[in-house]
């Protein structure tokens, strides 16, 4: 079937112009993922790729290029040929890695195609903790600065930035609620349950299983609006705290992608993201779909770039 579509597609376009860009796509597309198989980025990218091939008419193969805290995969994508046959997932880390001196690479080294997923950070505590609202937590931190500890990922990771930004937004210092590094959300949650730490700032998607099991409660979500999948969790903005942050995944191509190809890809990705098949897969994983394309996407990326740089400078993480 896919073969049939691709043949008709390439025939149809072939009559129009001689340029190879106009024939796009004529062969399989590779989608690079800078994180390991089985993670959130990988799962979303695979879900996208599976449906994208339907709308693109050629197969889309996912390749994981992992390592270096995401540097290697992002670097490989940026160095690929900008012909539309190599696209990839670019994650929020692209706004952070250069600050830590890991790489020179920033989002401007890519051709942004679309935002795909944005999982907002949450503020999660143990079920038996005395805090019922964010205000309770803030009061407790103010009463005894440095006593409560938070965790969620490595130092300087995205959930650490969530903590830093939150503390700043309510007028607290970085050291008032120190960060305990962990190797990801699930070890951090384990520490939370064992009372090793008091707060976890990982995304709602990651804490969902424990929330449903009644072992933890989420006081707030760091999003602009309440999330579709978690309508019962209030946002920080509702409570007058101006801070939002999420771990997002976008689809990008190497820099210098021809406009014809870019338009075709954008259209196919948009169709994919509206496809119920993709939406169901993402909802099942508890991931929050967020479609942003074109100029809005550029604006979004610029905003994230400055916001995360500010947080990191503030926390002394910028090299």
């Amino acid at each position: 079937m896919a073969l049939f579509i691709s043949i008709t597609l390439s025939n149809g376009c072939g009559e129009g112009g001689g340029s190879s860009d106009a024939n796009y796509p004529a062969r399989p597309v590779t989608m690079m993922v800078p994180w390991a198989a089985g993670g959130m980025t990988d799962l979303s990218s695979r879900a996208l790729a599976a449906v994208l091939q339907k709308h693109l008419g050629v197969s889309v193969n996912v390749v994981n290029r992992t390592g270096g805290g995401g540097v290697i995969g992002h670097l490989a994508l940026s160095q690929a040929r900008p012909d539309g046959y190599t696209i990839g997932a670019v994650t929020v880390e692209i706004t952070m890695m250069h600050n830590m001196g890991l790489t020179e690479l920033i989002w401007e080294d890519f051709t942004p195609l679309s935002l795909m997923v944005d999982n907002a950070a949450g503020i999660t505590v143990r079920m038996d903790s005395p805090y019922e609202t964010v205000q309770d937590l803030i009061d407790a931190v103010k009463a005894d600065p440095g006593n409560l500890q938070a965790s969620g990922t490595s130092r300087g990771g995205i959930w650490d930035l969530a903590r830093i930004g939150f503390l700043r937004a309510v007028g607290l210092k970085d050291s008032d609620m120190p960060w305990v590094p962990s190797q990801g959300a699930s070890p951090a949650l384990q520490e939370l349950l064992a009372s090793g730490v008091d707060v976890v700032t990982a995304s709602l998607t990651e804490v969902d299983a424990l929330r449903r099991a009644g072992q933890v409660k989420t006081l707030a979500v760091m999003a602009d609006e309440r999330l579709e999948n978690f309508p019962d969790v209030p946002t920080l903005k509702e409570q007058g705290i101006d801070w939002s942050l999420g771990g997002w995944v976008s689809v990008c191509a190497p820099k210098g992608l021809p406009d014809v190809v870019k338009a075709k890809l954008e259209e196919a990705i948009l169709k994919t993201m509206e496809d119920p098949e993709f939406r169901d897969a993402m909802n099942q994983a508890g991931s929050n779909i967020r479609e942003i394309q074109g100029d809005l996407l550029v604006k979004f990326l610029e905003g994230e770039h400055t916001k995360n740089e500010e947080s990191m400078t503030l926390a002394g993480l910028k090299q």
Binding site: G68, G69, V71, I72, T103, S154, R155, S182
Partner: peptide, 24 residues
């Protein structure tokens, strides 16, 4: 070798992106 997974600091990579990912 590579990015320290707890503190996020790159060690002993000598400017090589592949080494940043650690010795596989």
């Amino acid at each position: 070798v590579g990015v320290d997974p707890t503190l996020g600091f790159p060690r002993f990579h000598f400017g090589n992106a592949q080494l940043m990912g650690g010795l596989n």
